Simulated scan of single mutants.
Amino acid sequence: MRAGQGIFPEWRRLLGAGLVAPLMAACLGLASPGHARAASEPTPTSAAIRTPDFDESVRWYRDTLGFRLIGSQSLVPGRKAVLEKSGFLLEINETDHVLPQDPDATAAVRATGAPVISLIVPDVDKEVARLSEMGVDILQPPEDQLEDSYRVAQIRDNGRHRIELREPLDDPARFNPMGR
């Protein structure tokens, strides 16, 4: 494989425009020299998950949570897809093994112990009701947390990943559906 051949077209364009380093710095929460980050300035976020059910996971995040597929790629160890929602990037990697089963867990599948991603939503109660009607496993019903500054719930994706849904309570301006 030649250098750069495995990079998604959008990343190749960003790389050519010299935007990857500032984007990576932003993802890591690092301000560039001479740029002081305001405390309220949001930073891009990302996460990666591994799943043996690649096609189903991509479909689930797209159809259930509203992510859009940016690109996918077949690699020697498996496939990879990058999805986006409100500025949040999610990389889904195919793996050929599953997490250990726990008979005491919901539907006999052990969910991750801690959330792998946390998504800001405008109304946690409405989102949980919508997802519950779709048959999504609700691991923690909505409740106020973090000194009543967020309403929080947790769900499980189509596999074993715990997802936290958060609604800012103390300042409605903290919710920005564009993630910017």
Score class of each variant (00 low, 15 high):
Met1Glu: 09
Arg2Asn: 12
Arg2Tyr: 06
Arg2Phe: 08
Ala3Gln: 15
Gly4Ile: 04
Gly4Lys: 11
Gln5Leu: 08
Gly6Ala: 12
Gly6Tyr: 08
Ile7Lys: 14
Phe8Tyr: 09
Trp11Glu: 14
Arg12Ile: 07
Arg12Gly: 07
Leu14Ser: 09
Leu14Cys: 07
Leu15Val: 10
Leu15Asp: 04
Gly16Leu: 11
Ala17Cys: 05
Gly18Ala: 08
Gly18Tyr: 05
Met24Gln: 11
Met24Arg: 14
Met24Cys: 08
Leu28Met: 12
Ser32Ile: 11
Pro33Phe: 03
Gly34Arg: 05
Gly34Trp: 06
Ala36Gln: 09
Arg37Phe: 03
Arg37Met: 12
Ala38His: 10
Ser40Gly: 07
Ser40Ile: 12
Glu41Ser: 14
Pro44Leu: 08
Thr45Cys: 13
Ser46Tyr: 09
Ala47Thr: 08
Ala47Ile: 03
Ile49Phe: 03
Thr51Asp: 00
Asp53Gln: 12
Asp53Met: 10
Asp55Met: 06
Asp55Lys: 12
Ser57Arg: 01
Val58Leu: 03
Val58Cys: 06
Trp60Glu: 01
Thr64Pro: 02
Thr64Phe: 03
Thr64Asn: 03
Arg68Pro: 01
Leu69His: 05
Gly71Gln: 07
Gly71Phe: 03
Gln73Asn: 08
Ser74Cys: 11
Ser74His: 14
Ser74Tyr: 10
Leu75Met: 13
Leu75Tyr: 09
Val76Ser: 11
Pro77Lys: 15
Pro77Tyr: 09
Pro77Thr: 08
Pro77Ala: 11
Pro77Trp: 06
Gly78Leu: 04
Gly78Lys: 02
Arg79Pro: 00
Lys80Ile: 13
Lys80Trp: 08
Val82Trp: 01
Val82Asp: 00
Glu84Val: 13
Glu84Pro: 02
Lys85Cys: 09
Gly87Phe: 04
Gly87Lys: 04
Gly87Met: 04
Phe88Ser: 04
Leu89Ile: 05
Leu90Asp: 00
Glu91Lys: 11
Ile92Leu: 10
Ile92Ser: 00
Ile92Gly: 00
Ile92Arg: 00
Asn93Asp: 09
Asn93Ser: 13
Glu94Arg: 03
Thr95Val: 11
Asp96Glu: 09
Val98Asp: 00
Val98Gly: 00
Val98Ala: 06
Pro100Gly: 03
Pro100Asn: 02
Asp104Leu: 15
Ala105Cys: 07
Ala107Tyr: 08
Ala107Lys: 15
Val109Met: 11
Gly113Asp: 12
Ala114Cys: 10
Pro115Tyr: 04
Ser118Asn: 09
Pro122His: 10
Asp125Ile: 04
Glu127Lys: 10
Ser132Cys: 10
Val136Ala: 04
Asp137Gln: 14
Ile138Thr: 06
Leu146Asp: 05
Leu146Gly: 05
Glu147Leu: 10
Asp148His: 12
Ser149Met: 13
Tyr150Thr: 02
Arg151Val: 03
Ala153Arg: 01
Ala153His: 01
Gln154Met: 14
Arg156Lys: 13
Asn158Ser: 15
His161Tyr: 05
His161Pro: 01
Arg162Thr: 06
Ile163Leu: 15
Arg166Asn: 14
Pro168Ile: 07
Asp170Arg: 15
Pro172Trp: 03
Ala173Met: 12
Ala173Val: 07
Phe175Trp: 12
Asn176Glu: 11
Pro177Ile: 05
Met178Arg: 14
Met178Tyr: 15
Arg180Ile: 15
Arg180Ala: 13
